[in-house]
Design a protein around this nucleic acid. Structure first.
Ligand SMILES: [Mn+2]
Ligand SMILES: [Mn+2]
Ligand SMILES: [Zn+2]
Ligand SMILES: [Zn+2]
Lengths: 171, 171
DNA sequence: CCCTTTTCCGGAACGAGTCAAGACAACCGG
DNA sequence: CCGGTTGTCTTGACTCGTTCCGGAAAAGGG
């Protein structure tokens, strides 16, 4: 429901009982412009607007995600990413090669959208909150090019041990 | 299918074209005894058997997961965890409080067990490999105790910014 | 048993994220 | 409009899991 994007940044902060500060406005602005961005990207983006310390960005992201104003996702092998789309229990498609993340509306509806049939058998008494679904594969670009894009998660390598390639975790 | 656990360790190594070495046997043994264990636990467990360097364990885990002999999972906010159950596309239930991981058979069958309806719309040309499902909630123990167990992932905190508690990432 | 190739080792390095303590600035009440 | 009270930011050091490096060791084929 309460889609954060429709509210005035300062309004949504105050409504959550938070002070309206420069770092928070800067981060909210950065989030609006960079959905699913990693922290370092958000830091850079926030600095385009205001002067903010990296620690402030971390603090803001913690505060906001603890209060549910932003969502934090962390596809395996990636650093934390953040988005303003909250409360709609949507899912994500992630490219194994370039790490790109795309939203997918939840077909089933609200959380938990899926129910593990064997829950009672293998984890009796477990209280289920949500089912997180991550679709893995290759985006159109990466699927096309034989030589994949600068990699991100890459557990999908065919060969043996130590890879020589570098990796980068940008957006 | 090819459930790793039913094969002799040395056999499955050789069948994958790998040399049978002490570190690899030690890690396979550790994995058998500690499903879903984090790397540090596996290092400790492997050392109970043979003398192995931490780097060797990392190398082995990379080699084996690259070849698909072990599976690597990484629930958001946790370090990497490994298991021998591969190729059956099973899913996981994770306790938000203590970080405990439990297997859940995939009801649908083989990967990708789920199909995002809007794939073509929002990510046209995307080649789907698998759908990873992670169920989040509280295990019976943690749901019972008001004061939750030593924490692991804990994005579920209600209050504001900087938490005072410590955390630990064990199995 | 020797040689080649793979694998392992120890140590240094790295990067995302955290801790800590003092400076600062929102907001409130006057 | 001002000054005090908190909650928030800054700076800089630091932790922890993991990776990089290059020489040493050992697996396996001949
Ligand atoms: Mn999203
Ligand atoms: Mn499992
Ligand atoms: Zn891609
Ligand atoms: Zn628990």
């Amino acid at each position: 429901m309460t889609d954060a994007t429709v509210l005035q940044p300062s309004a949504m902060l105050r409504r959550a009982g938070l002070r309206v500060t420069q770092p928070r406005l800067a981060v909210l602005d950065a989030l609006a412009r960079h959905p699913h961005a990693a922290t370092d990207v958000l830091i850079a983006a926030a600095r385009e607007t205001r002067s903010v310390s990296h620690q402030a960005v971390y603090d803001v992201l913690h505060t906001l995600s603890d209060l549910g104003l932003v969502r934090r996702i962390q596809p395996a092998g990636s650093v934390a990413r953040y988005e303003l789309r909250v409360g709609d229990n949507h899912h994500h498609v992630v490219c194994r090669s370039c790490g790109d993340v795309v939203d997918i509306d939840c077909a089933t509806g609200s959380a938990p959208c899926l129910d593990p049939s064997e829950l009672d058998v293998h984890a009796p008494g477990f209280v289920l909150h949500e089912a997180e679904v991550t679709y893995w594969g290759l985006c159109a670009t990466c699927a096309g090019s034989a030589e994949p894009q600068p990699d991100l998660t890459a557990p999908s390598r065919t060969a043996s041990s130590r890879t020589t390639e570098k990796r980068k975790n940008r957006v």
